[in-house]
């Protein structure tokens, strides 16, 4: 508990699930999500860029080996699934995997550490895990969706894309049905992508908060859940990355 609110369970939970906000209405901004995701991303990608700038061919250090391992693992996944020629796919997949993984990893920080520390400075609300913020997961999935659409048009041409939209899967005679199917299919992609990540992380965080409510008994329970959660953290980052690659490969391959 960070503020002077009453120590009820629901107040505790609500407190932990409230973002640090600035502004109101639609123009509200979740500072905590933006700051944590931004710092993690800058830490990871600027660090990797600096490491890559002086990457050694003959004597890779331990950190370089780790980064190379992760990147070539992602690259292998991308190569196995995506057969187009866009040079964007592997970097995009690397970005998603590492960024989502790091943001999910914040879930393993005990739920009260950062809020209590920040309360000392008068900050009363702080959600540490950016992936429990649907704004972030939708930002990711809608960006992927945009890239997907651009790739559709780029690879097939506008005519080819529209032809595919109206004729697949039932042929030209059932064009309206095809269009409806396509719209549903394409809307389902970003929504399922973002809600899957959001739901998993939100639920995981919720379980941590509930465990934290147990008083003494949280000690034997938090550890197994955290260990189990390591799996979910990695798995969700991997799933998001993998589905992105799959969607992009679908966008760059003709269905007809």
């Amino acid at each position: 508990m960070a503020s002077g609110e009453a120590l009820t369970s629901s107040a505790y939970i609500v407190h932990h699930l409230t973002n640090l906000t600035v502004g109101n209405g639609f123009w509200t901004v979740h500072l905590d999500s933006l700051i944590v995701s931004g710092l993690l991303g800058l830490f990871a990608f600027v660090g990797m860029a600096r490491l890559a700038a002086k990457a050694s061919v003959t004597k890779p250090g331990k950190l370089q080996t780790l980064v190379e391992m992760i990147c070539s693992f992602v690259d292998q996944q991308a190569k196995d699934t995506y057969h187009g020629r866009s040079p964007l796919v592997t970097p995009l997949a690397i970005t998603i995997f590492i960024w989502v993984f790091l943001m999910n990893l914040m879930d393993l920080i005990p739920v009260d550490f950062i809020p209590m520390f920040l309360a000392l400075f008068g900050v009363h609300y702080f959600k540490v895990v950016p992936t429990t913020d649907p704004n972030l997961t939708f930002a990711l999935s809608l960006s992927v969706f945009t890239i997907m659409m651009v790739m559709n048009v780029k690879v097939k041409g506008l005519g080819g894309f529209l032809h595919e939209v109206f004729t697949v899967p039932f042929g030209a005679k059932l064009a309206p049905v095809n269009l409806l199917f396509r719209i549903i299919e394409d809307i389902a992609k970003p929504i399922s992508l973002s809600l899957r990540l959001f739901g998993n992380m939100y639920a995981g965080e919720m379980v941590f908060i509930l465990i934290a409510l147990l008083g003494f008994w949280q000690l034997p329970l938090a550890l197994p859940w955290a260990l189990f959660h390591i799996l979910i953290i990695t798995l969700q980052a991997f799933v998001f990355m993998m589905l992105t690659i799959v969607y992009l490969s679908m966008a760059s391959e003709s269905h007809g």
Binding site: G23, G25, F26, W27, T28, V29, H30, S33, L34, S37, G38, G41, A44, F45, V46, M48, A49, A52, A53, C71, P87, L88, T90, P91, L92, I94, T95, W99, P130, D133, P134, N135, L136, F138, A139, L140, L142, S143
Partner: peptide, 24 residues
Amino acid sequence: INATLFGEAIWFAVFIWITLKYVW
């Protein structure tokens, strides 16, 4: 859903750009 979405999208774009240009 609010303006945070745009902020996060900008972060995402920046990180993709870094990876595309300077990491991979």
